[in-house]
């Protein structure tokens, strides 16, 4: 009984405490660089799209709000023909960023994306693609992985020997 009364009293005293509320939008809150907000697609250091349309973000997404279709450029580079995020469904959990093997998809410290029309919350690739590398400068998936693309032949990725000629007689 005493504890109940004490609780009541302590809660009552909060009437005279400082308010924690930040009066957005007059004042803005601090957002950390790794804050999980609006999703973007980045480019690799060469300025090409990082996304290789592997579908891992789509499958990691718990609300299934990412849809894309793989396309292939002449020469073998994979890219998304379309890449669509339905932000009216997105819960900004960041699983897509975790799943992305190429650092293409990244969450940014921006949440101010309210719309009066829900359709405007469907972001296509043009809306998502930025011109920089985002949080991960210097990384390029194709320099690590073995697939040949224009400008990077077989054997030119990290830790690769030059292509072997199976018809050679040398051991």
């Amino acid at each position: 009984m005493y504890s109940l009364l004490k609780t009541l009293w302590l809660i009552f005293l909060h009437l005279f405490h400082r308010r924690e509320t930040i009066e957005y939008p007059e004042r803005k809150a601090y957002l950390a660089p790794r804050w999980r907000g609006r999703i973007i697609l980045s480019r690799d250091p060469d300025g090409e799209e990082r996304c290789v349309a592997c579908y891992l973000c789509a499958v990691a997404c718990p609300v299934d709000c990412i849809a894309l279709q793989k396309g292939e450029l002449p020469g073998g580079r994979w890219y998304p023909e379309y890449f669509r995020i339905n932000f009216s469904r997105c819960i900004f959990c960041g699983y897509c960023e975790d799943a992305c093997p190429t650092y293409a998809i990244q969450l940014t410290p921006d949440f101010e994306m309210s719309e009066y029309d829900r359709r405007n919350l469907v972001y296509e690739k043009e809306d998502l693609l930025i011109s920089g590398v985002g949080k991960y400068p210097g990384y390029s998936f194709y320099r690590v992985a073995g697939l040949a693309i224009p400008g990077k032949d077989k054997g030119q990725a990290e830790n690769e020997e030059p292509p072997f000629d199976p018809k050679t007689l040398l051991p």
């Binding site: 789509a58 609300v63 990412i66 849809a67 829900r118 469907v122």
Partner: peptide, 15 residues
């Protein structure tokens, strides 16, 4: 079970 894109596949046409 992991069929993806359910809420985005048709979002370009209808919400």
């Amino acid at each position: 079970q992991r069929y993806s894109g359910r809420t985005a596949l048709h979002a370009d046409r209808t919400m």
